[in-house]
Amino acid sequence: MITLGHYLVLSVAIFTVGTIGFVVRRNLLVVLMSIELQLNAVNLALVAANRFHPASHAGQVTAFFIIAIAAAEAAVGLAIVVSFFRLRHTVRTDEADRMRH
């Protein structure tokens, strides 16, 4: 029998994988994809929680907004990647260390 716990553990697992990807990968594109993974994991948790507390649609509505914002984030993020590539001719995150100065 599948309970809310199953969904939440799955959500945590995907979220963790996304976080590890965000931290360890050196490719800006993959880092952005990791963020998408994290957002998806959160969405999954929200929708699952909504399913097991169905008095309102708050979880689903929030997930809907998160999808919209994720789309915006992807658009802007990828624009930044393109811009960064033009500047440095690479998408290595190591090169994006100007924040130090």
Binding site: T19, V31, T93, A96, D97, R98, H101
Partner: peptide, 14 residues
């Protein structure tokens, strides 16, 4: 500690 790499900061936050 201030490497300028977002990923390291994210690591610290995590």
């Amino acid at each position: 500690v201030q490497t300028g790499r977002v990923q390291v900061y994210a690591m610290a936050m995590a």
